[in-house]
Every structure is written in C-alpha cells, then in structure tokens.
C-alpha cells in the first residue's frame, strides 16, 4: 500500500542507495515491491541489469508517461512502491510527493547537502498546504561513520531538529556493502563476505531502516484511522 519517495534535489545524497537498500530489504522480508527509477541517470535500471534475484523490482517510466499514473497503477498491484527521482529541481519529485505516504530525505552530514535538502522540504510543506493532507517525512543521514560523529554533522543534526524536521534514528553508514551493491549489481544479502567486508553490520543496518520505515507507516495508518473515527 505505501508509496515512499526519496527526495533531495542534491545529486549524490544517497537517494538511489536508500531506495535500493529499502526495496531489497522489504523484498527479502517477502513483501511485493516496485522501485521506480525516475532518474534519467538510470542508476537503478543499470543495477537491475545484473544477476540479483530482486532485479525485477526496478521499473522505469517511459518518456511521456505520467509518473502519477504509473505510481497509482503500481500501488494498486504491489505492497510497497518506492520512487527514486533525479537530484535536481524536477517536476517528477513534485508528482511523486503528491502520491507519497512517506518522504525519505537522504542527506549526508554536510552543510552543502543540508542547504539543498531544504528545497525538497519547502516543496513538501507547500504540497501539504495545497492538498490539505499530511505527508509524513524524515531526514535519514547517509554515509555516516558508525563510530564517530563529526562536528559538522552534529551541527546539522541540531539545525534539523531546531527546524522541527523529523529525523530517522537509523543512519545508513558508510559501508563497503552499500557501494558493492552497485559494483556487483546485487542486494546486500547476496554479496559474498569474501568480496565485501562488514556484511552482517550492513544487513543489520538495512533491516533497521526497513523496520523504522514500516513502523512509521503503521503509526501513520493508525493515526489516520483514529482521525476517521473522530470525524465520524
């Protein structure tokens, strides 16, 4: 049911990585998933040309195809639809957000990333106002160190919190496994420990992200159900 969008207008913030980690982690749990690669760069489409058993989860819109129609169609067939859009100020992001149950804002702990991420958040807030509906969202810190938090990262976290922007507790750390997913065109659970170090930690990290996402979606659904009961 849920539609999840990775949104940040900055390239290289970790949108494709977070989409792939989440999509394959959900599929590993037995869910039916489709990840729409709406980025003309085609990072995920390229990944799907590998030998992963999950490669069918990636789909891409054809030129001229209405992204919202594609999302609606896939959302009526699959349990989870995840959308990866280009890291630019593009209309696909606005279209995907209009269908989102959850917007994940991947961001590195860098000032440049944080500044650009505010564009996506501003667009989201405007959409909430225009369509009079709440869009759950949260910043996920990407490529962080599992051990040490830099001063810059701490400051950015403080600013995010000061701006009342929700944050995921899970961070996707800088891990070889996450870059090897693209190198070998496989999911984290399909990588070999002989090629990739730190696999158990990467798997645990991916599962924590999936669990947090599903928990947020469940909470949101409960709140919406309660709102319906109250209005009745």
């Amino acid at each position: 049911m849920p539609t999840i969008v990775a949104a940040n207008t900055k390239g290289g913030s970790g949108k494709s990585t977070s989409c792939l980690v989440l999509g394959t982690a959900l599929a590993r749990k037995g869910a039916t998933v489709r990840v729409i690669d709406a980025d003309p760069q085609g990072t995920l489409v390229s990944w799907s040309q590998g030998q992963s058993k999950y490669r069918d989860i990636v789909v891409s819109p054809t030129p001229g195809e209405d992204l919202t129609d594609l999302i609606d169609r896939l959302a009526s067939e699959y349990q989870f639809v995840i959308i990866d859009v280009q890291g630019s100020a593009n209309q696909e992001l606005a279209a995907a957000m209009s269908r989102a149950d959850l917007v994940v804002i991947p961001m590195r702990g860098k000032t440049a990333d944080a500044e650009v991420a505010t564009n996506a958040i501003a667009l989201l807030r405007k959409q909430e106002k225009l369509f009079k509906r709440r869009i759950d969202h949260g910043v996920i810190f990407m490529a962080t160190s599992a051990g040490v938090k830099t001063r810059e990262e701490k400051e950015i976290r403080a600013n995010v919190e000061a701006g009342s922007i929700p944050c995921f507790q899970t961070q996707l750390h800088e891990r070889t496994a996450f870059s090897h997913m693209f190198r070998f065109k496989l999911a984290v659970d399909e990588l070999e420990s002989t090629d990739t170090s730190g696999l158990p930690a990467a798997l645990e990290n991916a599962d924590a992200f999936r669990n947090e996402v599903t928990q947020i979606l469940r909470q949101s659904r409960q709140e919406q159900d309660q709102e319906v009961v109250v209005t009745q």
Binding site: Q86, S88, Q91
Partner: peptide, 10 residues
C-alpha cells in the same frame, strides 16, 4: 518553487 525540469516530457 523552482522545480521546472521535466525529464519525462515527450
């Protein structure tokens, strides 16, 4: 909001 790029424009 400045989101003008349309990658899937026919």
């Amino acid at each position: 909001e400045g989101f003008t790029i349309n990658n899937f424009d026919e």
